[in-house]
Design a protein around this nucleic acid. Sequence first.
RNA 1: GCCCGGGUGGCGGAAUUGGUAGACGCGCUGGACUCAAAAUCCAGUGUCCCUUAAAGACGUGCGGGUUCGAUUCCCGCCCCGGGUACCA
Length: 954
Amino acid sequence: MEYHFKEIEQKWQRYWQENDTYRVEINHDKPKYYVLDMFPYPSGAGLHAGHPLGYIASDIYARYKTLKGFNVLHPMGYDAYGLPAEQYAIRTGQHPAITTARNIERYREQMDKIGFSFDWSREVRTCEPAYYKWTQWTFIQLFNSYYARDEQRARPVEELERRFATSGSSGLDAACTVELAFTAEEWKAKTWRERQEVLMNYRLAYLSDTLVNWCPLLGTVLANDEVREGLSLREGYPVVQKKMRQWLLRVSAYAGRLLDGLETLEWSESLKEVQRNWIGRSRGADILFEIAGREERVEIFTTRPDTIFGVTFMVLAPESPYASLLTTAEEAANVREYLAYAAKRTERERQTEVKRVTGVFTGSLAINPFTGESIPVWISEYVLSGYGTGAIMAVPGHDARDHAFARHFGLPIVQVIDDGEGRDVQEASLDAKSGRLVNSGFLDGQPVTEAIRRVIDEVERRGIGKGKVNYRLRDAIFSRQRYWGEPFPVYYKEGMPCPLDESLLPLELPAIDTFLPTETGEPPLGRARGWTTVEGYPLELNTMPGFAGSSAYYLRYMDPRNDEALVGDEALEYWDSVDLYVGGAEHATGHLIYSRFWNMFLHDTGRARRPEPFRKLINQGMIQGRSSFAYRLLTSADGEQWEATRVYVSREIAREAEQRGVEVLSSRLGEELAGVAAVSFQEIHVDVNLVKNDLLDMEGFKQWMPEYAGARFVTDNGKYACGHGIEKMSKSLFNVVNPDTVIEEYGADTLRMYEMFLGPLEASKPWDTRGIDGVFKFLRKFWRLFHAEGDFHASDAAPTRAEMETLHKTLKKVEQDMENFSFNTSVAAFMICANELTAARCDKRAVLEPLVVALSPFAPHVAEELWQKLGHAGSVTRATFPLWDEKYLVKEEFEYPVSFNGKVRFKLLAALSATPAEIEERVKAAPAATRWLEGKTIKKVIVVPGKMINVVSA
RNA sequence: GCCCGGGUGGCGGAAUUGGUAGACGCGCUGGACUCAAAAUCCAGUGUCCCUUAAAGACGUGCGGGUUCGAUUCCCGCCCCGGGUACCA
């Protein structure tokens, strides 16, 4: 009986569905394990062969953990709100709900064919009211909370109100937009509206007028992680900075905990590093500078307070309120002109023209608090308003940007650190992180680290500043001017936002038929009838961004149908948090930051059991495409063959192409012809589905591209060999491999094993369909072990020692590889095993049955079929992963390679327990050794047990 | 610029508390079976020298070092990939 994968796979996929094989419930008799995939955004293109890589890996691990006796939660769902569906709706008028549902159906179909062990009864879709009810609910909790820095956790805003009523703002240590100071009496005197404005300054979800990333072509604002190099990440549209009133999440309040929490996680070092950089902690000091002849004092942030004696000027960001405040009448015109210039510059211009030095003098002088000297105050766009205080003390001697500025405007440069290399700071700045202080009064001779400490002490003693930690991480802009997203559960009273009563949740997204903004520039929700008011008050028209729905979906999977809570107590208690999370590294600064923030907040308020949601994280690499090329001849000329491109055609053909204008497509190898012409050509991407083993299906190609139907094909013995290259897998490059096609030809089990066999999970690697035969052959070979005589057969004979060694060697390797997520090498171990058992003609149940169980995570369909034929009722999922026995792996004697001074000369059979002296005797006695030992004396014998004997001779 | 990761046959990749480099697979070559093809099976396959074999030399990006022994450790470079950037 042959291996008919198609029948087998259909049969078992149906069985799993009918028997709810993968349904999982709370079971207190078993330890739990939670394996999570990053759920997909269902795009119109469907899955390509690269997408399931992570799903297959997590599925293999989930199945393995189940065999190991764990109660495994392995859910799947859809991140269904998003911009592409809405952009498509704007173009075609198709409602996003319809296209999204269609795409989901297609995704599900494709995933089902791969044979995943997902518990589909737990599926979630972020666009469904029963799901986003809890997204809205969490938003209200954020709105009603503030961050108590002294307690390092979120607290209810109500507490803040009570506190203000008794003691005003005094002694409050809370994360806020601006530091406020008021008394209890002042608080009590405020109107409702004024109080709301004060509270807004502290809420974790807050409304604020800030500079935001506005993308005019998308008609919406974007978060920082959605913008790269001044362009929108997905579409590449330009983004400008614009002051707008927007919802934000006070993610920055959690910056310190987000950073410190990384130390507790089993994530790759590189991913943690990306998050560390993104959060960007710098330690330094805030220091006040007095302004000559004025009341105002300007606060700056610096990480290098030690260099304060080298401060020769001060620079303000153009957006700093001090910029115009400190401008003198004489300089007013210049400053006005500069500020106008700076306001016009886009983010992208600023970023691409970093080397351009611009600035203007305000006319004011500040006082260096340590030297007492007057220093000019300048304005320049190289100082960012959003970081630190929007003002800096400039140390041109030891900062490259300050140096460039000083040189450009002829400002003085002073050296205050000497690193002993004797470089001239007038020429280039010396960005020394070590060295000793010079020209610095009481700091002279001090090393840098000590000087930093002393300056901070001195500044604090004099009450003109304090040590401070600054973060690069900004608050997340949380509103989007679009339709296809979660509505905010918010209405406006006296212009101030109020949360809806929780009993009104979910606030459902209304159906509309035009998805563009309204004529008055309102978000699309402005078009919805019956939407605009609740109890006579207007509703928020913005919707939430994509990351809102994906920030806590892992909690919802634990208890997806609960209508009373985001997740019920029992489910939360049992499932706890995600043990293994598998997904792409591209989410490092987006989803993986927001989720951690969101979860930490829920943890603070008792709705998550742990501060960190994802204990272990694996980033699967990208699978790249392997593009195929044909070569279209453009011109011809007599000459030498073109070695570099390996395109060979005859002069005759080249001339024919030239004269008659015939399209000529040359094979990579070309025809073997006497006369050869050098030609120039154009690479044409050929649909990889028309290419097998690099050979082109020429008839198929003509049909696929009718404009080449009349083309002349230059072949090599009738075969047309394509060139190839590794590129990103993309529709436009015709190199997309669809998993459905692979399954059709080889089956899901082969696809699963081949994706694992391609290389290490975390590495990106090219998809090359040519290699898949090897894995397919393995499965067929494995199948044939049971069908040596045609029908299924498994012998009850006792296995030989060699067969047991093969079995236990394989079990040990596979188990160890599983724990290390080294799936490619475990596939290799199975192949070796099958080769050895085939050679031994082993059909023994005692050997094969454990292998069926061990193989089942990789190739579940074929394993089920064999398990059933071996006489077991029910699914192989209920089996136990076989234990390996060391006794079959221990050898008493080893064949050691024997080396002389490091060079391997021969092999020697020696007992593991032999002493070096005994081994030395045997080496001397070995006939082959004599020629290597001639005239030499053995100095010592080094024995590495089980590995190597090295003889060191004089 | 800064930070992180990586460089091993024709290809994807194995192997590192320092111990036979190239597992496994693809590809290629030869053979068996076949009228033939496909499929399957068997053998070979880092480079050089060589009719072949034995033996040997070289070989994990480059140059040094430590060691009986280095793909693995140390120092100095080169190249590739990713992240990030007037963050003071």
